[in-house]
Computed example of a mutant assay.
Amino acid sequence: MKKFQQIDDLIIYPNTKSTIEVVPTDGYNGAHRYRVQLSTGFNSKKNTYDYVDKTTTIQFVQKNDDGSIIPGLQSEQLALILLDRVKKLNERYPSPYNDIQIEGLTMYLQACSDRVEERINRGVMGKLEK
Rank of each mutant, 00 (worst) to 15 (best):
G72D: 04
D99S: 15
V36A: 00
N64F: 05
P94L: 05
K88D: 12
L82N: 10
S18I: 00
L38Q: 06
R35H: 01
C112S: 08
G30K: 02
S113M: 05
Q77Y: 09
I58K: 03
A79D: 08
E76P: 01
G41F: 14
K88F: 06
E103A: 15
Q74F: 08
I70P: 00
S39R: 08
R92P: 04
R85Y: 04
G104T: 05
Y108L: 15
Y93E: 13
Y97L: 15
N43L: 10
Q101D: 15
H32V: 05
P94A: 08
K46T: 14
V22H: 00
L109W: 02
V61M: 13
N64M: 04
E76T: 10
P94R: 03
S44E: 12
K54D: 14
E91F: 05
M107G: 11
D84A: 07
L109K: 09
T19H: 09
S44C: 03
Q62M: 09
D53N: 15
N47D: 09
Y93L: 15
E91D: 13
V36E: 01
I102E: 09
F42R: 11
L73W: 12
T48M: 09
F60I: 09
V22Y: 00
D50G: 08
S113V: 08
K17L: 09
I69A: 02
D66I: 01
I69R: 04
S68K: 05
R33H: 13
S95I: 03
Y93S: 14
P71K: 05
S18K: 02
L105F: 08
L80F: 01
F42T: 10
Q77I: 01
N47Y: 02
G104L: 11
P24L: 03
L38W: 00
K54H: 07
R33Y: 09
Y51P: 00
A31S: 13
L82T: 02
G30T: 05
V22K: 00
P71W: 02
